[in-house]
Design a protein around this nucleic acid. Structure first.
Lengths: 223, 223
DNA sequence: GGCATTAAGATTGCATACACTTTCTTAACA
DNA sequence: TGTTAAGAAAGTGTATGCAATCTTAATGCC
């Protein structure tokens, strides 16, 4: 009856390993191309190889790791071409979400989106990049969820996690807070008007700009 | 263990199991909600539980299986809402692919698409449903690949496999070969003209029609 | 009779052991 | 000196065993 929760045990060991390793990949602690040695990881997390293996297999399916049969796994290395296609997909997905959000958001969701957006103007005036970045993440999340489409949400989350190692918030936002806010403003305005096509197009353009910047960043780093 | 030379292609045992089980799910041999017992599957394929476990974990990530901690896995049961969102996503993805195809296909790809499409008219005249279905699959595949976007292709393939258990070719095409062909014709024409928006919209509408039919099918079957 | 409790059986989760594959080392040969 | 072959080392792939958890069915209590 009482499932006796021990410490931070938020699921099975395998799930913990998936989260832990994914986190290390997404935060950049493990860099693309780096070897994911089973015994090393097993020792690091004080578990046997079995859950590590399952975790790596799952990360492979997620696209965060590349598994080579009999040759171990490495942190996924994506080609410039593949990276571009992921950014491109993200822009398309974002456009779809904005369009659906314009058509489907509840009144409460619209109001929340708008008020948060208006409040964020203060971050721009203050040049508070960290606060704005935090708000920005929330803004996009609202769009994803406002689309009321579970499957699209899944695709967005997956794509986001795969892109994470190649994004750097500082780079994305530095010096373009005001511009970002205005782009958000266009999206919000269209959503409040329930104008799906305009909202979608604005969101797609918004993310496309961000993508190009990140793509440049990635390529200059010579991955 | 001796090298197994069974019906499935080579690769690691785990990969074989993933393909085999996924195939059973996609073909409907294993129905949504059905229990995926580790020992039963292990005996059925003459392997130990380990590769089965890894395969089930991967199928879980793919969305083809639901894994309940300590309680085994079952073939994924999707709610009507989730199913709708997948069909909807498929329509959107198809639209994107058609738009990109119109903009990016090589001359060779365009010619191949057009000539196959024209040839398929004969299947309509003959009422050759199986031949048309086979062509139809290829037509859509050409669209997916013509988009020249690896990541979108991945999303399409994943979504398709998850929808497969709920699609029945006979149901989709019976009595609407001519209509399907005309919808294809609109898409092809737009692609040949490199008109991305028209092609995308036509493809989205085309798939949306198919989706509705399938969704009805799924719900009437009371899954 | 209905409901909670709990013990037995069944099933999953993880660890360990061993087999097989790849990779590295070393040395012989051209 | 460069190439390659053989063996050793390292690492992955699969099987099996045991502990932990869930399921069930029977038992006792109200």
């Amino acid at each position: 009856m009482k499932p006796k929760v021990s410490l931070v045990r938020s699921g099975t060991t395998v799930d913990q390993m998936v989260r832990a390793i994914a986190d290390h990949i997404v935060t950049g602690e493990l860099r693309p191309g780096e070897k994911l040695d089973e015994v090393t990881l097993a020792e690091k997390f004080n578990v046997s190889r079995t859950p590590i293996r399952e975790a790596l297999a799952q990360l492979g399916v997620m696209g965060l790791a590349d598994r080579r049969p009999n040759r171990g796994a490495i942190v996924a290395v994506v080609t410039q071409e593949h990276l571009s296609s992921m950014f491109e997909s993200m822009a398309e997905l974002e456009g779809i979400c904005a369009r659906f959000s314009a058509e489907r958001m509840t009144l409460g969701e619209r109001k929340a989106l708008e008020s948060e957006h208006i409040a964020s103007a203060q971050f721009v005036r203050d040049g508070a990049e960290e606060d704005y970045e935090s708000y920005n993440t929330g803004f996009h999340t609202r769009l994803y969820e406002g689309a009321h489409s579970k499957h699209i949400l899944e695709m967005v989350i997956l794509t986001r996690s795969r892109l994470a190692p190649f994004r750097r918030a500082q780079f994305r936002l530095r010096g373009r807070l005001a511009k970002s806010w205005e782009e958000h403003d266009a999206i919000v305005t269209a959503i409040m008007r329930a104008d799906g096509n305009v909202a979608g197009e604005a969101a797609r353009a918004h993310v496309t700009l961000v993508s190009n910047a990140s793509a440049v960043f990635a390529s200059t780093k010579g991955l």
